[in-house]
């Protein structure tokens, strides 16, 4: 028997489509603008003639960006950071979230550990103690300084722990009756049912690693170790207009070279844009509530 599909009347449909199309255009416009800028000539960009279509098409900005060895190096470092940092973060997050999601009678010290983690979200020691801890653990100027200090994002832990808690206890009890231990429950029951949350958290983590720039700038001792966004920060920053001298002229020219910046920004956007569609299906798969019977 064919399920009946409820179809909207024609005008409501049209209204929906129009509103959605407008919203989509609103979101797309800045990206298209940056894309157009990156393919336009510098004079056209400076005089603001570029809207969504390139004016005076040129590949010069991309050539300049891709020829610059610093850009390539920082791109690779960011890529490595995401590829290594995301699994590390996710594994640690899952391993912390599972115990925190157990009921108090199963895990009596749970509240202590919960507060142990939550305090770090509420209060922070400040920049200097953070820097000193990292320095004294010998991580300054090393690749792992980009990953280890932020390896357990407590916010994500809380998110995941809450998601584990919403899964009906009956499922775990059913698994336990079949002889499942903690690991099996975690990997074969909880994780498969938490796929949407996991996908979301993974994406958060990956994007956070990709976008973070401050730690790169502070913790690395030389610019060839900067991840991509730290490097971009050095090119995209705005100089203090009161302190400009004629020695800054060449810096000014690069900084006001909007096309190069646009090219760099667009190239930095591409990986995330490419990954998103593949994770789309995890966001839409529903929790299988129907497996609880009786």
């Amino acid at each position: 028997m064919n399920p009946r599909i409820y179809k909207l009347p024609f005008f409501e449909n049209l209204l929906n489509l129009t509103v959605l199309a407008l919203l989509a255009a609103l979101c797309l416009f800045p990206i298209l603008h940056i894309l157009a800028l990156s393919f336009s000539s510098a004079a056209a960009a400076a005089s603001g003639r570029v809207a969504v279509w390139p004016v005076e098409f040129t590949l010069q900005s991309y050539q300049f960006v891709l020829d610059n060895p610093a850009f390539g190096k920082s791109f690779i470092i960011s890529l490595l950071r995401v590829l290594v940092g995301t699994p590390v973060n996710m594994i640690l997050t899952i391993l912390v979230a599972y115990p925190l999601s157990r009921p108090r009678d199963k895990f009596r010290a749970r509240d202590f550990f919960a507060w142990f983690f939550i305090i770090t979200v509420l209060f922070s020691g400040g920049l200097i103690p953070w820097y000193m801890v990292i320095r004294q653990t010998g991580l300054i100027d090393k690749f792992w300084a980009l990953i280890l200090p932020g390896a357990v994002p407590v916010f994500n832990v809380i998110l995941l722990a809450n998601s584990f808690r919403t899964i009906p206890k009956e499922l775990e009890e059913a698994a336990a009756m079949d002889g499942a231990g903690h690991w099996t429950v975690l990997f074969k029951v909880l994780l498969p049912l938490s796929l949407p949350v996991l996908a979301t958290v993974t994406l958060f983590v990956a994007v956070a690693h990709w976008n973070s720039w401050f730690d790169g700038l502070i913790l690395m001792n030389s610019p060839d170790k900067y991840p991509l966004q730290s490097y971009l920060q050095t090119v995209v920053v705005n100089p203090d207009p009161r302190m400009l001298t004629e020695r800054d002229l060449d810096l000014l020219k690069i900084i006001s070279n909007r096309t190069t910046r646009a090219a760099q920004i667009f190239i930095a956007m591409i990986p995330i844009l490419m990954v998103y569609p593949f994770l789309q299906r995890y966001f839409t798969s529903g929790i299988k509530l129907g497996s609880v019977k009786g």
């Binding site: 100027d141 700038l217 502070i218 001792n221 030389s222 610019p223 920060q233 050095t234 920053v237």
Partner: peptide
């Protein structure tokens, strides 16, 4: 260490 001008004071 070597840093970008904008972060010099902080570093």
């Amino acid at each position: 260490w070597v840093v970008d001008g904008s972060m010099y004071e902080q570093k």
